[in-house]
């Protein structure tokens, strides 16, 4: 996963995608493109295909509340409803789409869960910072989908504490203390407290787990850095730029690949070979 973030020579996506746009067919994890809400009708289509083939597998997709304004989301809800597709449509309402508050997606008039009503879908609105609520709602929706009772739209009401990305500064558009004033708390802390109250967990265990996770990420990062980091060499071979555009390389790409090869020899003489 960290190889993918670095777009290095160990990245199984061959350095072609922005960070965290993972893909893992092995885990039934579909790669999103980075365009907005396009994954929603695709998930419905996947679910329709599963139903067409008499498969028991279901699809789930996630979209931010801001992107529900896209036509694709409307298409997804319509198709899910019309074909009773075994799909869960999750809306992560974290209240901020970069600098635009959820009102720009219509949140001042109604909830996102309420959208379900107009399509005749089941709609749930849950505390997205309550891990148990998320689990229960998802399990309920999955069961519904599996037993052919239809699609469910779940609004996860939550809060984006950090910026949209590492290049975003939220203090430029919202109050600096808003994050502290958010009443529903950090979901990991809440689950921790709950488990401690049940006697199933302790502060010590939690601290240990935190440390282990941090170490694991650190170690993986160090390991991945051996494969290079973006912009500092050690990418996939140049010829991969032209691969997978089509199943077979057409003549025009073959010609362009020759030009790229020539340029490489001039721009980076002596570097790793073309293929």
């Amino acid at each position: 996963m960290i190889n993918q973030i670095y777009s290095n020579k160990g990245d199984k996506l061959k350095g072609r995608q922005l960070p965290i746009m993972y893909s893992s067919r092995e885990h039934s994890f579909f790669t999103i493109s980075g365009n907005l809400a396009t994954q929603t009708p695709q998930a419905v289509g996947w679910a329709m295909a599963s139903a067409i083939k008499g498969d028991s597998r279901i699809a789930a997709t996630w979209v931010g509340e801001g992107s529900t304004a896209e036509g694709d989301f409307h298409s997804a809800c319509t198709f899910a409803s019309v074909y009773n597709a075994p799909v869960i449509l999750n809306v992560i309402n974290n209240q901020w789409a970069i600098s635009s508050f959820s009102g720009f997606a219509g949140a001042e008039r109604t909830t996102f869960a309420n959208r379900a009503v107009g399509y005749g879908l089941a709609g749930l609105r849950i505390d997205g910072n309550d891990a148990l609520a998320v689990y229960a709602a998802t399990q309920w929706a999955a069961e519904r989908a599996r037993s052919n009772k239809g699609p469910t739209l779940i609004e996860h009401f939550t809060y984006r504490a950090e910026g949209h990305s590492t290049s975003d500064d939220p203090t430029a558009y919202r109050s600096a203390q808003e994050r502290e004033e958010w009443p529903l708390g950090d979901p990991v802390n809440r689950l921790k407290k709950h488990l401690i109250a049940l006697g199933e967990w302790s502060e010590e265990q939690h601290a240990k787990m935190d440390e282990e996770c941090a170490q694991q990420v650190k170690a993986a990062t160090k390991e991945a850095e051996k494969n290079g980091i973006l912009g500092h060499g050690l990418h996939h071979p140049f010829r991969t730029m032209f691969q997978d555009v089509y199943e077979d390389l057409p003549w025009h790409l073959e010609e362009q690949a020759k030009q790229a090869k020539r340029e490489r020899e001039i721009k980076w003489p002596g570097e790793e070979p073309w293929s």
Binding site: Q42, G45, W46, A47, M48, I52, K53, G71, S75, F79
Partner: peptide, 24 residues
């Protein structure tokens, strides 16, 4: 195997992408 769709070209192509990813 052969069916009518809603009047939504975005939806038609979008679900076709998902169906392709599934293996159809």
């Amino acid at each position: 195997r052969v069916f009518d769709t809603p009047i939504s070209e975005c939806g038609i192509i979008g679900v076709a992408v998902g169906m392709g990813a599934y293996g159809l």
